[in-house]
Amino acid sequence: MKVIETNGLTKRFGKFTALNGVNLNVEQGEVYGFIGPNGAGKSTTIRVLLGILKATEGKASIFGQDVWKNAVELHKRIAYVPGDVNLWPNLTGGEVIDLMLSLRGKKAAGNRREELIERFKLDPSKKCRTYSKGNRQKVALVSAFAGEADLFILDEPTSGLDPLMERVFQECVAEVKAEGKTVLLSSHILSEVERLCDRVGIIRGGEMIESGTLDDLRHLTRTSMLVKTKEPLEGLKDLPGVHDVKQEDGAVSFQADGEKMDGIIRHVSRFGVVKLESAPPTLEDLFMRHYEGTGGEEADTDGRTTV
């Protein structure tokens, strides 16, 4: 069952097109990583999903209901953490948490509120103006996880947290996932996405350019190889799926396309392999290619990479 579904979602601010036909599908019970460079349209998408911005074109629904028309009804089931948490300077953290819970019509179950405040090591008696960015984020995280929700929309929720708190956050996500809840996680911290997310969508320039499981995406990227052979390695450059060939004191290094790997290995093995090193593509390599827009020499100038 699809929890979030957008179809050709487009948002224009005057002449500027922030989102251009975004299709985003998030399934029930999965943690979906939503990634892309700054200004790519992540937050705009999320703000449309929350009914704060009205889509210029296209459809967006959550739990099968229109996000604009049924915003208020939908928000009963959604917990949201913004990336840039602005709080009221003259209220305390504790007051804001209670306020946010009650605005969603929720009461924290049992001592869930205290437990989370404890886990995130937040001092709720301090005024929000004294909080650092990380502490303001903790307030938003505690309010989100303390109330019952079926969908968690988290927009770069850990950008101000220390590594210990980041771990607490990851535990919280794992817990709600175990309960069968759905999570849309926008993040820049790739290790976090790698650890938490079942599927990933990459957005750039207001368009979804890639979507799938991490394995799917890995398959699309290149592995770096280093080979040393008995006989001189020949004909490598002409092989399909081989890029960036360099001689390195007796060895050859190159990039190999995942889907052409079989043919490449067969070719190389004919020259008598002495040493073979392969580094699997990290998520970072994957992102770098998409973020930069010119990930390889074969990338189109319009930013759509061909692999």
Partner: peptide, 23 residues
């Protein structure tokens, strides 16, 4: 000086109107 604040919100604060008054 600024004093330490309340750890919990009063019943009045927990509504949009209460918030607008409080602010």
């Amino acid at each position: 000086p600024s004093r330490p604040g309340k750890k919990q919100a009063s019943a009045f604060l927990k509504s949009p109107f209460g918030l607008s008054v409080r602010l």
